[in-house]
Nucleic acid binder design. Structure first.
Lengths: 315, 315
DNA sequence: CGGAGTTGAGTTACCGGTAACGTAGGACTA
DNA sequence: TAGTCCTACGTTACCGGTAACTCAACTCCG
């Protein structure tokens, strides 16, 4: 008991005793068993479960980096959960990770299975839903309004005089956020009197190559499309390369718009029309709010990090 | 006790009892406390600590994805550790994560602090060192020989007739592997009678933009360089874009070589000279070997996944 | 039909911390 | 000098599972 007090620096021991204890710690190479501590007090671990759809998407690795950096600086650890864009996978992961008594959870997306929601509520631990802003979160939400970002892009393209619109995305739709963007985009086009002639949903991950062949597919089936909005920058860059290879001029023959502003944009010889989002900030803010709740403070339930439309040379 | 037996499907109970127990489980919404299980038997958790230098580097996110997918399919979870390329950070993380009784560890790199090695040895749990192959690992090693890959690139470039060589890398050198590549490259050049006129080490992350301005720096200080080997493909692609912007012809005026074959290569209008490495495979194999050891089987101590030099159009 | 073996279920103790409480002995006060 | 308080340290019990053991009831067989 005295040793326990010394190691926790709780006070109630003499300097002489402290030295004796520390000497024994040194001699035995003693490492505390944190499992026992958690068990004894029915406390939480210092684990924070973080679910993301997949790691292939650069956007989420930035979010994850923001989360982990912040957590580590407050002596917490990230337990990873890759949901593969499947709510069922997420539910299984939530059940498993909860049995390990995490200090909190960060989930990507606002959609969960009913049982997952029930598990989360009865676990009653701090929770942040990130990415697509949830105005009535289970506990807390950090992200941006994807519908609005799609809507703004639609309006911007309309203002540039386009009338026939296309969209290319994939079924790897992180937490339905890309679908929200598409819905916003479609709504803007409808409101503005344009025509969304074709929307393509590839069964692939949203990377460079799907952007490349997705553009080929879309243009061959609908050559009159004037501008294409892509699920993200990587796909848009793939599209630009396809157009260059086919001698299709941008923006004279076709307009290209991406989403997310990824690092590669900094070295491209053209300025991609895109939507800038501070991914790292989403992760940091989510972790910050979670840590506040964990330490018993209050944190804002809804944090909108916003977005910024970047008009480039590609439309 | 009977409930415990039912839930573990251990046998030694009647069907009638099983149903009674399961009904109570349902009624109470009972979730087992895995912490107690670990504590009771002085067992391990199902956590596997995975340390990687940083998440900004696409290469490691692929490795991590390979690891996590495999672990999840065997009911284990990844506990992330970002070491920021600092052995001290790694040591701190190892100490923390060990106190949570992980089932095993996967560490990127073969270099560790003496105290870290001591902690790892006394923890006596399955351990895989990945990335730069360690022929005498603490426990197991999965990766490739980075020195050899650099050496092969050097020899290949010599065979193309180059005589004045450059190198551009960064101080974010994941587990010293890039330095091994540089050493191999330098050795090949020396052996072949070429000249490594300049090696640049930028204080930045090895991304597109550092490749861009690193090339500018190197060429302005040493305009006679004939070919440049980059730390990775992203930097090499940044270099290609710099050359395009400056109307420097590739490969006529300068040769460019990358390393790692990243996804963007698939849509480039040219074929980048690079070294192909199966990053996902490294992660999968590391997790596989670790899980074998965890379940009490034996696994090979050293697994070389190899590499393949890809002669492209850029030299 | 009695003894041996089997089956299903209960009892006890333990893992390693820590909360809560107990207590000896010194200091301080009225 | 007796009573009170404080400090430093010790004792006990408990968290929730499970290993190891016990035991009653039933089965099986010569």
């Amino acid at each position: 008991m005295t040793a326990s007090r010394v190691l926790r620096e709780e006070g109630g021991y003499s300097e002489k005793t402290r030295l004796t204890v520390m000497a024994e710690v040194e001699r035995l190479g003693y490492l505390p068993n944190r499992i026992a501590t958690v068990f004894s007090g029915d406390r939480s671990t210092t684990f924070v479960g973080v679910s993301i759809p997949d790691l292939g998407n650069e956007v989420f690795t930035h979010v994850l980096e923001g989360i982990d950096r912040k957590l580590v600086s407050f002596n917490h650890q990230t337990v990873l959960g890759m949901t593969q864009h499947e709510l069922g996978e997420e539910e299984n992961w939530i059940e498993t990770v909860l049995s390990w008594k995490p200090a909190g959870l960060i989930l990507t997306g606002r959609a969960h299975t009913p049982r997952a929601v029930q598990l989360l509520q009865s676990a009653n631990i701090p929770l942040v839903e990130i990415w697509d802003l949830n105005s009535s979160p289970i506990d807390m939400s950090v992200g941006l309004n994807h519908f609005d970002s799609g809507y703004d892009m639609g309006r911007f393209l309309l203002s540039k005089g386009y009338a026939r619109f296309g969209y290319v995305g994939t079924s790897h739709d992180a937490a339905n956020a890309a679908t929200s963007r598409l819905n916003g985009y479609a709504k803007a086009i409808e409101d503005g009197g344009g025509k969304l002639t074709r929307q393509l949903c590839l069964n692939d991950i949203p990377g460079f190559y799907p952007g490349f062949y997705g553009t080929e597919q879309l243009l061959s089936s609908d050559p009159d499309v004037e501008v294409i909005f892509f699920q993200n920058d990587n796909m848009a860059i793939g599209a630009v390369h396809f157009c260059q290879a086919q001698n299709i001029r941008i923006p004279e023959d076709i307009g290209i718009a991406g989403w997310g502003e990824l690092p590669i944009a900094s070295v491209l010889p053209y300025r991609l029309t895109t939507v800038q989002v501070n991914h790292l900030r989403i992760g940091q803010l989510a972790a910050e709010n979670l840590l506040l709740k964990i330490s018993g403070d209050t944190a804002s339930a809804v944090s909108d990090v916003g977005f910024r439309l970047v008009p480039g040379d590609t439309v």
